[in-house]
């Protein structure tokens, strides 16, 4: 049964390219185009734009990483390169997001190690890479310069620009030809303002991925959900300042009380489901990339996204 939806859209979500293959001078096995949607997510046969991607998120310093993931991943979590390889080969992720948690340490100065880590990850895993740098303005400029340079030619997605600190990450992205994650705190207007700020210093739309900030399910997720819906809606209504693809990267999904306080036997399952519900909802709201941290979430999500996208249900009994 098919019936047409009624809304007349005038806008299209702009596209952003991630990852450079050999043809583009990089070493990735694949590159992705984000965006291009001219309707609401998953609507149409086939839907417009591209199927949402699942990014597996890992880090270079697991000390502040969710315990439930460390427990599951074991030693892998101490080796970003191997972990990234597992994300590609074992978990089936579409891309990898490397969170440079080492930069959160007090008096951080390990710039050289950052470079090594990024290069190692790029060597061991051929998927396009998202790099999440520091969140401290006093080291931003150096960190982003290192990240940008280490990934030169690979068309990374570099994060994170915020209204209070966007100049250094934007500068690194522009210098080394990467795209930028633009994060704002769960507000469509602030998202728009940040995009405008980035434009005004010369970052073009096709290098911006909006991160509207995803709160954990049960902890404000509904705000993020509605902001994502509003952003997509505005883009389709022709607001070019919001017509960029979105990334959903909840940071607290696996540290919520429901997971922390769960009985040990049930904890892994609850973690996976919590993350899965959040990520899938974000994709339905319009996220082009959904980030997850539990390896088991990746295949579950990919199956469901495929079913929502094409109508073919893998594993249907």
């Amino acid at each position: 049964m098919t019936i047409r939806t009624l809304t007349d859209w005038t806008g299209v979500v702009g596209t952003v390219m991630l990852g450079a293959t050999a043809a583009d001078g990089g070493t990735r096995s694949v590159s992705y185009t984000l965006g291009g949607e001219s309707d609401l997510p998953f609507l149409g046969d086939p839907p417009s734009g591209h199927i949402p991607l699942v990014a597996f998120e890992l880090c270079d310093d697991p000390a502040i990483w969710p315990a439930v993931v460390r427990e599951y991943a074991g030693d892998l979590s101490n080796d970003p390169g191997k972990w990234a390889k597992a994300a590609e080969a074992d978990y089936g992720a579409d891309l990898v997001r490397l969170s440079l948690t080492s930069t959160r340490r007090k008096d951080f100065s390990g710039y050289a190690a950052l470079k090594t880590t990024i290069q190692e990850v790029l060597r061991k895993c051929r998927l396009p890479l998202i790099v999440e740098g520091s969140n401290d303005p006093s080291i931003d400029s150096e960190v982003f310069a290192v990240c940008g340079e280490a990934g030169e030619g690979e068309r990374l997605l570099l994060g994170t620009a915020e209204a209070g600190r966007y100049r250094s990450v934007a500068a690194a992205a522009m210098a080394y030809h990467h795209a930028v994650v633009a994060q704002s705190p769960i507000d469509i207007n602030l998202a728009k303002q940040l995009n405008i700020l980035l434009h005004e210093i010369g970052v073009p739309s096709d290098r911006i991925v909006i991160d509207p900030y995803t709160g954990a399910l049960g902890y404000g997720f509904e705000y993020s959900y509605s902001v994502m819906e509003r952003i997509r809606y505005s883009a389709l209504k022709g607001d070019t300042d919001l017509a960029m693809p979105m990334i959903s990267a909840p940071t607290d999904s696996l540290t919520v009380k429901e997971v922390r306080d769960a009985a040990p036997a049930a904890r892994q399952d609850i973690a996976v489901k919590w993350e899965y519900y959040t990520a899938l909802s974000s994709a339905i709201a319009g996220a082009a990339i959904v980030c997850v941290r539990h390896p088991r979430t990746v295949p579950l999500l990919k199956d469901t996204l495929a079913a929502l996208w094409s109508g073919q249900t893998p594993g249907k009994v």
Partner: peptide
């Protein structure tokens, strides 16, 4: 609906 995709659309 015969699929989730179809359900969402319809």
């Amino acid at each position: 609906s015969s699929s989730l995709h179809q359900f969402l659309n319809v």
